[in-house]
Amino acid sequence: MKKLTLKDMTESEQREVKTELDRARKNQGRPLTNTEQNKVKDEAIERIMAAREKIAKATRAERKANRVQPTSTTFSWTASISTRPHR
């Protein structure tokens, strides 16, 4: 899966990333350097990507379980054809 960008995220996911940046800034007690900012942002994006992948995996499993299961009975053409001769 390719790395998400902020543009690809929903509003709530973008807020989550910004909240993480704010928490890190508050914990440091100073503005973050570009390296620190990128590290925090990458960690938040990784968590969001993992959550999305988990949801996608569950969806695929559910779809696979709901797929029509092949049965052992087959369609019988003779049952649908009248045995009476046509006149």
Results as ranks from 00 to 15, higher is better:
A58T: 07
E46H: 11
D22T: 13
L21V: 15
E36P: 01
L32F: 00
K26M: 13
K39W: 08
R52L: 12
R25N: 11
L32H: 01
K57A: 13
T83Q: 09
T73V: 14
A61G: 04
A24E: 08
P85I: 15
T78D: 06
S76W: 03
H86S: 09
A50Q: 08
K64F: 12
T73Y: 07
K7M: 02
K41Y: 02
L6T: 04
S76A: 08
E36W: 01
R52T: 06
D8T: 06
S82N: 11
R84A: 13
E16V: 04
S76T: 08
K57F: 12
R60W: 07
M9D: 00
M49R: 06
H86V: 15
T74N: 05
D22C: 09
E36I: 02
K2E: 13
N66D: 11
A50K: 15
R47A: 01
Q28I: 01
W77Q: 12
G29S: 01
Q37N: 12
K7Q: 11
T5P: 01
D22G: 09
N27P: 01
T59D: 11
L6A: 04
I81S: 07
A58L: 08
Q37K: 12
G29H: 02
A65W: 08
T83V: 12
T10F: 05
Q37H: 11
T71G: 07
A51I: 06
N66Q: 13
K7T: 09
K26V: 08
S76Q: 04
F75W: 13
N66W: 05
I45A: 02
T33S: 15
E53W: 04
P70Q: 10
S72A: 13
K57I: 14
K26E: 11
K54R: 14
E16S: 09
V17A: 01
T33K: 10
T73F: 10
P85Y: 11
K41W: 02
I55M: 07
S72H: 12
R47S: 00
Q28W: 07
K18E: 14
K39H: 06
K39E: 08
K18G: 01
K3H: 06
E46L: 09
A44K: 04
A51D: 11
T19Y: 09
T35R: 12
I55G: 01
T59E: 14
A50L: 09
D8V: 00
A56P: 01
T5Q: 04
E36S: 05
L4E: 03
A58K: 10
N27V: 10
Q69T: 15
S72E: 12
P85D: 14
F75H: 07
L4A: 11
I48W: 02
R25G: 06
T78C: 05
K64G: 07
D22L: 15
R23Y: 15
T35P: 02
R67H: 06
R52M: 07
E43H: 10
M1N: 07
T10L: 05
T71D: 06
A44H: 00
A79N: 13
N34Q: 12
I45M: 04
P70R: 14
V68Q: 04
F75L: 06
E16I: 06
A44D: 00
A51N: 10
T10R: 06
L6I: 08
F75S: 08
D22F: 15
E43A: 13
P85M: 10
R87T: 09
R67P: 02
V17C: 05
T83I: 08
